[in-house]
């Protein structure tokens, strides 16, 4: 299923999220099971499936990584659920350094400067990678698509780091 088509939006990485949200609600207003509560059993079942599809499509387009993956899947390159180990020494080294920084946070007497530093690094890297991702996807060539796939794999590390950092920050506050 082409999620961009469902929302009548152009199949590209850059997306107007407000417009996506508006169109999502417009679709749900028509297909949500509540609109078919008085229908026959079959109609109710179809409404559930349709609304689930719309929810899934919205969920996938809303988040940049899932959106990029969907875009690549539409171009015939599937990377979700892959079990591929990632090798690029410079990148792995950088990840290790960030992990060490995170480990320091939980032991530090005053963790806030370290939290800010880690956050800044992660945000910077993420931003840079997202820009690269956009450029690669906009090029729309098989070679650039493989580039994009690699960038997505890298970004996943950063999104994970960010989650862990947020968790650490919460624990510090509690």
């Amino acid at each position: 299923m082409n999620y961009f088509q469902l929302f009548h939006l152009p199949a590209q990485f850059e997306l107007d999220l407000t417009e996506l949200g508006t169109r999502y609600l417009e679709l749900q207003r028509q297909f949500h099971p509540d609109k078919h509560a008085a229908g026959s059993e079959r109609d109710k079942l179809m409404a559930v499936q349709q609304a689930a599809n719309i929810n899934d499509a919205y969920h996938s387009l809303k988040q940049p990584l899932l959106r990029a993956e969907h875009l690549l899947a539409l171009r015939g390159l599937k990377i979700s659920n892959e079990q591929r180990s990632f090798m690029e020494p410079a990148f792995l080294m950088q990840q290790m350094e960030l992990r060490e920084l995170l480990a320091e946070i939980s032991e530090a007497a005053d963790p806030y400067p370290l939290i800010d530093e880690a956050d800044q690094q992660i945000q910077q890297q993420k931003k840079a990678l997202l820009r690269q991702l956009q450029a690669a996807l906009d090029a729309n060539s098989p070679e650039q698509d493989h580039q994009a796939a690699d960038i997505i794999r890298k970004l996943k590390f950063f999104f994970k780091l960010q989650q862990e950092l947020e968790l650490l920050e919460q624990q510090t506050q509690d």
């Binding site: 169109r23 109609d43 179809m46 349709q50």
Partner: peptide
């Protein structure tokens, strides 16, 4: 029949919008 109707209704649900609108 129901599947065809659903297909059409989902395609025409956002008819007011064109892809190149954005």
């Amino acid at each position: 029949f129901a599947a065809r109707r659903m297909d059409i209704s989902i395609r025409s649900a956002l008819q007011g919008h064109k892809v190149d609108e954005v």
